[in-house]
Design a protein around this nucleic acid. Structure first.
Lengths: 190, 190
DNA sequence: TGTACATCAGTGAACGCGCGTTCACTGATGTAC
DNA sequence: TGTACATCAGTGAACGCGCGTTCACTGATGTAC
């Protein structure tokens, strides 16, 4: 059953994609490798042809997932048409669509506190993603000094992550929407 | 080995206290009942004399822990001496001491994303804690309408939770301190 | 107040289960001649 | 270009382990008379 290099790479991507979805939906600890591999259309035994351990998959999933959100955020700013890039980013990040998507939201939101308890590699990757996201946001403040732009970006990103995390945690959809709406408004207008 | 009612209640409190510390340090999933009971000075078999299941302990720990942070936050505003109550709350919540304390920080920070994936009871309790914290903060804006005060409180609380969560997640202590400092400054001054 | 008995907090071993990981095996692919 | 062989992605069963939970038992406490 040996596969071509292209197929092997494609399988690896499929596992990472399934992992990103399952981790977001259930968390890292609550996602078993057997379920995860089944979601990728494989059996669990094949896992170790692609990854040394679950921890390594977590780190790689974070790397790929955060690369994705960085790209999406960058694109949101480019498509701002009319609004400022910062506004477009905030609207995108805190939209009910994005935050409500159990399998699609930002990994820092879906896994934040779990990553804080995780191993060093995953934390380093997540930290790198946080900083790159902050840089994308800082670029939207060209009229500020680099330091001020960075400070404001880190503040705004932290606020967005906190709001999205709480919006996902509270069971009441109205409260969830209120948290997102308030944070959008205060970041953009105030 | 039957114990008096007072002793039994004290033991139960000790288990919840140990759970609060262990959950904050390692997360919920990563904390086993045997370790937790050992931390409380007991053996695992006694657990079910006090709690129906681990899930019920999680819910009760959240209830007690959030009651604690609400009280501490209220007290911080009362002891504001000079500064406004809001400033005192922000300084307290985002102090490196509070956030750096692996076993003592706010449960919404330490367990946020894990609770979002948890069972309904724990989410309801956490949501209640979030709203009570928001009310304590809203009280610090007596010159605003109730709605504006609530909106601003929810925004500020979300920002604090996000900042504290990221500060705990990133491995670099300098970046961690920068996140906390920026968020303190933007919430208070801007 | 003193005695006999029921209660039940806590112990420590055991249970079944699902986890991450390993392994012998299969068979299509890529490589060497 | 055709043939023989080594490679290795993927399968499916098995492994040891630690988890949440259960249970028989202990013995100090609270209660009934």
């Amino acid at each position: 059953m040996k596969k071509s290099k292209a197929e092997t790479a494609e399988t690896r991507r499929r596992i990472v994609k399934a992992a990103a979805a399952e981790f977001r939906r259930n968390g890292i600890h609550a996602t078993g490798l057997a379920d995860l591999m089944a979601a990728a259309g494989l059996t669990q035994g094949g896992f170790y042809r692609h990854f040394r351990s679950k921890d390594h998959l977590v780190a790689e999933t974070c790397a790929v997932g955060l690369e994705g959100i960085v790209a999406v955020t960058d694109a949101a700013a480019d498509d701002a048409d009319g609004r400022g890039g910062f506004e477009a980013i905030v609207e995108r990040y805190l939209s009910p669509d994005h935050c409500g998507d159990q399998a699609g939201c930002c990994l820092l939101v879906a896994l934040g506190s779990e990553l804080a308890h995780g191993d060093e590699e995953a934390r380093a990757v997540a930290s790198e993603g946080f900083q790159r996201l902050a840089e994308v946001i800082a670029k939207q403040f060209p009229h500020m000094t680099a330091e001020t732009a960075r400070a404001r970006a880190i503040f705004a990103l932290s606020a967005m992550i906190g709001a999205a995390t709480m919006a996902r945690m509270v069971p009441d959809p109205d409260l969830s929407a209120e948290i997102l709406r308030n944070t959008r408004e205060y970041l953009i207008k105030g």
